[in-house]
Amino acid sequence: MIIHHPILGPRDAQEFVYLGDASLMDRPDGMTAGIEEFHEYLYQRGNPAGEHRELWYHEQGDRSWLVVTRNTVTHEITKVELARDVARAKGRSK
């Protein structure tokens, strides 16, 4: 596959490491959330046949974490964003 890196342009997916569902960025605050909430966060994922937002790490590149929107059936990639930008837009901070 080819991932169109927002900064570096088209790069072979071989250069990346896959993590999984982009919802992994929605980590609860450990000082306020309990076991149930963390359990939901860590283990409960959708497994869609179709569009899926997922985290990829450009390990053999610029070390950016990306959010890739990929169709799990056709492998078509419709959007690639820097995960840091997505996280900030969601209000994640320090």
């Binding site: 992994l24 960025m25 985290l55 790490y57 820097l82 840091r84 996280a87 994640r92 901070s93 320090k94």
Partner: peptide, 11 residues
């Protein structure tokens, strides 16, 4: 890098 970029991007 995941923690730095994705979990706590303003650090």
């Amino acid at each position: 890098e995941f923690c730095r970029q994705v979990l706590w991007p303003e650090m």
